[in-house]
Amino acid sequence: MIADIKAIIWKDSKLLLRRGDNRMRTLFTLLTPIVLFGVVFPIQFRDEWIFTGWSIVIAIITPFMLISMAIPESFAGERERHTLETLLASRLPDRTIFFGKLLNAMVFGYGMTLVLLFTSLVVYNLVEWTGQIQIFEAKILLADISVGLLMSGMVASLGILISLRASTVQSAQQTLMAVLLLPLLLIQVAGFLLPRETVREILRNIDFLKTLYIFASVLLAANAGFLLIGLKRFTRSKLCLE
């Protein structure tokens, strides 16, 4: 199974890098978060970047941005390019195809998250050199690594679920964006509707660690749910007829 998954990842990563026939666009997509999160943010936030947990932004936004760009290609892209049926007619088992595509997106999104965390550390140390190397506090590093992984899994499994049924990459991207942005929109609406004093009170009383635990638990539950639904929906006959 591992060799088969590696074959899928090998092929999908090649297609990902040749996305839209334009290598410059791919390069630009990859460079934007590197410059923003890896260079600009650590310079702007300075010590806060290392010691107050602002780096969690990388763990949340990077998988969100990169995986939501890559995962719609998984099945909707194969369907759009008329390559899906040939892939389904191959000897690859259902779960291998499913997990191969899921892992490819996760490796891309989570890999970039780790690269950005490391880059931001390097940049911070270059700018704020104190004679010794500064790294994230253990609990911040653990939060960044685990939230990044859970976020990658959640966006990838939700994206694959949408991509399984979408007829085009564009429609899959739009649906995925709408679903992912809905919670943010609800928070914004709630912030607008609630009295200002109440909002200030909530923000004052937020416990970073407690909020993180709740957020991670929600992500974990979403991961498991989307994955199970995705696996159930992956049936060759349905994919073939669609």
Binding site: K11, K14, L15, H82, T83, E85, T86
Partner: peptide, 9 residues
């Protein structure tokens, strides 16, 4: 029905 080739590859 379709050749099923990955045309970008």
């Amino acid at each position: 029905e379709h050749h099923g080739l990955y045309e970008q590859m």
